Amino acid sequence: MGRAYSLLFRTVLTRIDPERAHHLAFGAIRAAASVPVLRDAVRAGFAPRFPQLRVRALGRTMPGPFGLAAGFDKNAVGIDGLAMLGFDHVEIGTVTGQPQPGNPRRRLFRLVADRAVINRMGFNNDGSAAVAARLARRTPRPGGTVVGVNIGKTKAVPEAEAVADYVTSTERLAEHADYLVVNVSSPNTPGLRALQAVDQLRPLLSAVREAADRAVTARRVPLLVKIAPDLADEDIDAVADLALELGLDGIIATNTTIGRDALATPADEVAAIGAGGLSGAPLTERSLEVLRRLYARTGGRLTLIGVGGITTAEDAWARIRAGATLIQGYSGFIYQGPAWARHIHRGLARQLAASPYATLAEAVGTEITEATAATASTRGDRSPVDTEAEEGRA
């Protein structure tokens, strides 16, 4: 399947506008999932289960850690089709309070030489009322896919009214979400990234938490925030501290970058594309750095979701060792094709078997704890992470 898809990608898909190719591929996935016999056959081939990869996160048990990041299924129209391909959770959105068409086309670009994508989609979606109604009509299968809901700010809403806009979406969508994500890190909505500043983020997250608790009283909907890789280290620390202060359930690291460093694609071609968020392989190292810093700062007290530049099982394993309980991908789907989740699962099972750990949970953050312990031993003291872990157990 890998070689066949690679040939199809090189000879056919690269000749089609990326956004049109996305719609064609997603349409085919949804069509296959609508036929029960075909859906079950595809699931059997593309979604083999490895019991040793089962994880418990955000109040849910998942068959594995690998999910599809927000941006692919913006309107919750293909969750079952994506689960059919083996994704352990699907994050829909980004959904905004009001429907919006997004930015003018063209707005999605491949950088094939870099295995990367630039997008300036601009949160094109049907709006939170329509998406909530669609989710309400959906009949989840028993033990079905965990669904995250990613919410953002409507472009037309002034920054002064951003909190109310997020609250509106929360009130509509929280009851349908296995977890809720506040997206303040897309570079394609003017002013959005300014909301990552702690003085603005604190009232926003507090209001969303309160709205989710009002909307859903039978359970607590886990709440996470998604941050940019372009934050300075001290700002990453500040967001981590705020997440702990407010009792958030986790952080997603990271969104796309506005950086364009060290690309193989000629600079003039990149410049001609213009503004947008870069995702894919060039983001790997920075997203991993952010994840390491978050885990070291929080000592394993938050659920961290690693995303950004994950292509192979080795990439996924590195995120787990750096502190991610869950991992997500998006751009890799474009370059790896429909068998991508299967390859990730098989590779992770091999990585786990070759490690000293019996479960993925045991492997989470071990790169950081081992490094911290080694540093502490040279100084003759105890690591902060170990101390915090002991206090948590007490």
Rank of each mutant, 00 (worst) to 15 (best):
R20L: 15
A21I: 10
G27T: 02
R30K: 15
A33R: 01
V35M: 12
P36S: 10
R39L: 05
R43Y: 03
A47R: 00
A47P: 03
R49L: 15
P51R: 04
G64D: 11
G64Y: 10
D73K: 00
V77Y: 00
G78F: 09
D80K: 08
G81N: 04
A83E: 15
L85P: 01
F87H: 10
V95K: 11
V95R: 13
N103V: 09
R105H: 13
L108I: 04
V112I: 14
A113M: 06
A113K: 15
D114W: 12
F123G: 11
F123S: 10
R137E: 13
G143R: 09
G152I: 13
G152L: 13
D165A: 06
V167A: 02
E171F: 08
L173I: 12
R193C: 04
R193M: 05
Q196A: 13
A197L: 04
R202D: 06
D213E: 15
V216F: 11
K226V: 06
K226G: 03
A228N: 02
L248S: 02
T256I: 12
G259I: 05
G259H: 12
A264W: 09
P266C: 07
A272I: 04
S279E: 05
A281C: 01
S287I: 13
L288R: 05
L302R: 06
V307K: 07
G308I: 02
A313N: 00
A313I: 09
E314Q: 09
D315Q: 00
W317N: 03
I320T: 11
L326F: 00
G329P: 10
Y330S: 08
G332E: 11
I334S: 04
W340R: 01
R342S: 10
L348F: 00
A353P: 04
A371N: 09
S383M: 07
V385D: 14
D386P: 00
